[in-house]
Every structure is written in C-alpha cells, then in structure tokens.
Simulated assay, not measured.
Amino acid sequence: MPLTDSNEFKKKLCHIYNEVSKELFGFGTILLKATIDNNMVTFQARHRRSPRSTALEGEAPSLKYEVDFYMSSIYKKRIREKLEQDMGLAIEAVLRDYDPHTQWAITNIIVVDNERTTE
C-alpha cells in the first residue's frame, strides 16, 4: 500500500501506534502526531509515565534504563508487524528514539520505495 498524506490514513496510523502502546504499557499516549514525507512516516508521541517506571527510577536507575531500552526495541518490532499486517505497508526500517526523562518518543518508519527498488 502506498503512503497517502490524508487525515484518514494518518488517523489509522495513530490508532495502530496507540494500540501497540496499550498492549505493551496498558495505556495510550498523551500526545500523538503522525506526519508523512515521501516514503517516511514520523510519529511524535508523548507517553504516560508508568508507576512501575517511576519506582524503578528511584530504586534501580540502571535497571530502568535497561527496561526502557528493551521496551523500545519491542515497540519497534510490534509497530512494524502491525503496520505490515493491518496497513499492508512494506517497511524497510523502524527507527525510534525515546527520552525517558520527558517521555517523548520519535519514531520514523521508512517504507520501501518501489521506484527506488526498481532502478
């Protein structure tokens, strides 16, 4: 499925992003915006702070950092699977950066550019 820069398409993308968030963390995002530029989808998301995360931060900061890293890796895997299955997108790469102090995450989804692959 080609990327379409329409509100309806972006709503579907955001819905899937929030589904994955709810599946992994138990709740969705506070703020979420999807933008599309050529063959890239960018999600700008502010996540809710988990009570478990706050507890770990005070008692075992290095463990919290490690958990954040692994949860972000799992998030990338799940968002790829859902977007490929539910939206029919052929994904080349999922890049995600998460700042645990502010709870902001930027996720870039690079979709296979069919024109580039046929050259």
Rank of each mutant, 00 (worst) to 15 (best):
L24P: 10
K22T: 14
P61E: 09
L13T: 05
E19R: 11
E59L: 12
L24V: 06
A60W: 10
P61S: 05
V20F: 00
A60I: 12
T42I: 13
N38V: 07
T29Q: 12
G26M: 02
P61I: 01
L13W: 04
I36E: 03
Y65E: 15
G28M: 03
H15C: 00
Y70K: 06
S50I: 06
T42M: 10
E66L: 09
M40A: 15
F43C: 08
D37R: 12
M40G: 01
R48F: 08
K22D: 11
M40E: 12
F69K: 04
Y17N: 13
F43A: 12
N18G: 05
E19A: 10
H47N: 13
M71K: 13
L31I: 14
E23V: 03
R46E: 08
E59R: 04
T35L: 05
R52G: 08
F43D: 12
H47S: 08
Y65T: 06
Q44E: 09
A34Q: 06
I30F: 00
I36A: 04
A34G: 00
G26F: 11
Y17E: 05
L31M: 13
K12M: 05
L63H: 03
F43I: 13
R49I: 09
F25A: 11
Y17D: 02
M71Y: 01
H47E: 00
S53T: 13
K22W: 05
C14N: 13
L63P: 01
N39C: 02
E66S: 03
S62A: 15
F27R: 15
Y17H: 14
V67M: 02
H47T: 13
D37P: 01
K33M: 10
K64D: 06
D37G: 05
R52I: 14
G28L: 03
R46L: 12
R49H: 06
F27I: 09
R49V: 02
T29R: 04
E59C: 11
F25N: 10
C14I: 15
R49K: 11
L32V: 08
Y70F: 09
H47Q: 14
Q44D: 12
R48L: 13
A45T: 14
L63F: 05
R52Y: 13
T35G: 08
E19I: 06
S21D: 00
A34W: 14
R46M: 13
E59Q: 11
L32G: 09
V67Q: 01
R46F: 08
E66K: 07
H47M: 15
F43L: 06
P51F: 00
Q44H: 09
T42Q: 11
E23W: 13
D37L: 07
G58N: 15
G58S: 07
D37Q: 04
H15R: 03
K33Y: 06
K12Y: 09
T42S: 09
L56I: 09
K22G: 02
K22V: 15
S50C: 13
L63K: 00
F43E: 14
A34N: 00
Y65G: 03
D37V: 15
K64F: 04
R52H: 01
A60P: 03
N39S: 04
V20G: 05
A55E: 15
F25Y: 14
